[in-house]
Nucleic acid binder design. Structure first.
Lengths: 155, 155
DNA sequence: TTTCCTGCAAAAGCTTTGCAAGTAC
DNA sequence: GTACTTGCAAAGCTTTTGCAGGAAA
């Protein structure tokens, strides 16, 4: 499993080579930023982060690169509840928590997440694949709700 | 649980009253269309459906109404993998299957879905709520993959 | 050298909004 | 009668695209 454990240029370069992606300064910056951060940023948030870190990069490149990373399977595209997409450099199955009020997405601590994921009965998933003629690539679980403290603007 | 089992005007009107939504011809048409259909349409798909059924309605109203329905909890907003949102009139927890290639979302047959959902251990969910200070409103599970027959345009 | 990537700016989609007229309550 | 909805068109977002110059392999 190609986890983002080592983020030095060399490691990322190898990762890219494995999936036949050219290694560029911009792609490294984007992947590195995404893998270093625990939130699941939108394109624009990522763009801001990179801009502030003095990386000179264009918004279109962020879009293009993320699409390329998703296609290679190095990054996953998530739904935020709202208008724009969010991205996640962790591609193993894991749990997300989504705040209804803000759209932000956070990870559930690995141990708890695993406990929940491991309970999913494989034979049921297999049966779904057979009944629907559908190949499951991964399972996405989101706990939707709100933080106790975020009881702000609810209509 | 306010399920969309009876869709006559009266039933929907009651439903709306319960959640303090004014009952209008357009809102009825939108909710009825959404609840009658098994796919999980995008705003535009819904708008097309209504237009073809001779309902005279504006796109903005579809957006406004869906937002109102989501706020009242009568409808759920889903992520399609792509650019536009999808909507679902079934608010009980249930499983979705999302086709990577087309973005379409379908339901997993209720019996299979329930088998999977019932395995989720409540005590783990509770613990997540406590550890994160997060109130879980509902659980969203998506099986992402592709139909055996939809092996079309994959790069 | 060849092929792909980047950046810009322009275009295309999706969603929201202001406002006047209409409708539920 | 009052407050909320509708519909239109315009504005605001997010995302994609064409193309010329630049960089990786």
């Amino acid at each position: 499993m190609p986890a983002a454990s080592k983020l030095c240029e060399q490691a990322v370069q190898e990762l890219f080579t494995q999936v036949h992606l050219r290694f560029t300064r911009q792609r490294y910056a984007i992947y590195h930023a995404l893998a270093s951060v625990h939130s699941h940023p939108t394109v624009d948030e990522l763009f801001q982060m990179l801009a502030q870190a003095n990386h000179d990069i264009s918004l279109a490149t962020v879009y293009n690169t993320l699409e390329a990373l998703v296609k290679s399977g190095l990054v996953r595209k998530l739904s935020d509840g709202g208008t724009s997409a969010r991205y996640d450099a962790t591609v193993d199955d894991h749990l997300h928590v989504r705040d209804k009020n803000t759209g932000t997405v956070a990870d559930v601590p690995a141990d708890l997440g695993q406990r929940l994921l491991k309970t999913l009965p494989n034979e049921v998933l297999k049966q779904i694949e057979i009944e629907l003629g559908f190949k499951i690539n991964h399972v996405e679980i989101e706990l939707v709700g709100e933080y106790a403290s975020s009881k702000t603007h609810v209509a």
